[in-house]
């Protein structure tokens, strides 16, 4: 009897471990396959060339530039709004129906499939506001998409600041905003930064909403440069430029028949995975450093 129970115990332990190994192992295997398929194509030529009908001459330059510019818009719009919303919810909001409504919509938006954000952007930004299939449209779409992530992580970071810090500031006559700007935000900065990095790493890999707003899969030019040689030396023409981003470029190559293009797709995939892993690693590092340094 006891023997049987001990046996089933050991059996389950083995089963559990193999399930975990299966889960993690399969993924490692898949990334191994990606590495084998793609690493041969991942060179300087690949990073600095335009797409081409010939797989071996094709490159990812416009997609890298496009991703960078779209992220710029996303960060510029999404981060301030997200952080401000989180500050409001944690430091200002009273328990009213409005607060309740805001919290419900944030939770809800976090679960909306990204392609629905694409449809929103198609109807609202592309046609109603007439922004077209531009970098600006894509950036705004992704800004809305990452909003819940930024809000949730910022709130967690702010909540970790002990209430005594605020009380001390209030006791010295600081206003609410002075307390937030001089104490709460600086102390929670690394936590907020972690959230921002995670949010941007999610945005950089998003494909479906960007397809929906009409990114091109084959693009042989770069958007107009933001820096010009004539005064005022800054140009915002690039905001309205057609574009492509890295995940779209990879999608375009995956969808084309032929092993050569598959290799290009794998190389683009490696680049994407590498970037998200690097960003997540950075986020984990920031979080770890914060945990070590701060002791209340």
């Amino acid at each position: 009897m006891i023997k049987r129970r001990k046996f089933s115990e050991a059996l389950f332990k083995a089963l559990g471990l193999s399930a975990l190994v299966l889960a993690v192992g399969t993924l490692v295997l898949l990334f191994g396959a990606l590495l084998i398929d793609g690493v041969g194509r991942l060179d300087w030529q690949f990073l600095t060339s335009f797409p081409s009908r010939h797989a071996s001459q094709a490159g990812i330059l416009p997609a890298v530039v496009g991703s960078t510019l779209v992220m710029l818009v996303t960060a510029f719009v999404g981060i301030p709004i997200g952080v401000a919303a989180a500050i409001y919810l944690e430091e200002y909001a009273r328990r009213t129906w409005l607060t309740e409504l805001i919290e419900v919509t944030v939770t809800n938006l976090a679960g909306v499939p990204s392609i629905i954000f694409g449809l929103l952007a198609l109807g609202l930004f592309v046609y109603m506001l007439g922004l077209g299939s531009s970098i600006l449209t894509a950036g705004l779409t992704l800004a809305l998409l990452i909003l819940p992530v930024v809000i949730v992580t910022t709130r967690e970071a702010i909540r970790a600041i002990p209430v005594q810090i605020r009380e001390a500031a209030f006791a010295l006559g600081a206003t609410r905003w002075q307390t937030v700007a001089d104490h709460v935000l600086p102390y929670s900065a690394s936590g907020i930064l972690t959230g921002i990095i995670l949010a941007l790493s999610r945005a950089i890999g998003e494909t479906a909403p960007i397809v929906t707003v009409g990114a091109l899969t084959f693009i042989a030019f770069l958007p107009p440069s933001p820096i010009t040689d004539q005064p005022p030396y800054l140009s915002f023409e690039w905001l309205m430029s057609p574009f492509t981003v890295m995940p779209i470029q990879m999608f375009g190559w995956v969808s084309r028949p032929g092993e050569d293009f598959a290799a290009n797709a794998a190389a683009a995939g490696l680049l994407l995975v590498g970037m998200t892993l690097a960003m997540n690693g950075l986020a984990i590092y920031v979080r770890y450093r914060m945990r070590k340094r701060v002791s209340w």
């Binding site: 990606l34 790493s201 494909t207 995956v254 995939g269 997540n280």
Partner: peptide, 10 residues
């Protein structure tokens, strides 16, 4: 956190 397009490739 891996982009879904990569999973599509898999």
């Amino acid at each position: 956190a891996v982009p879904t397009v990569v999973y599509g490739y898999f």
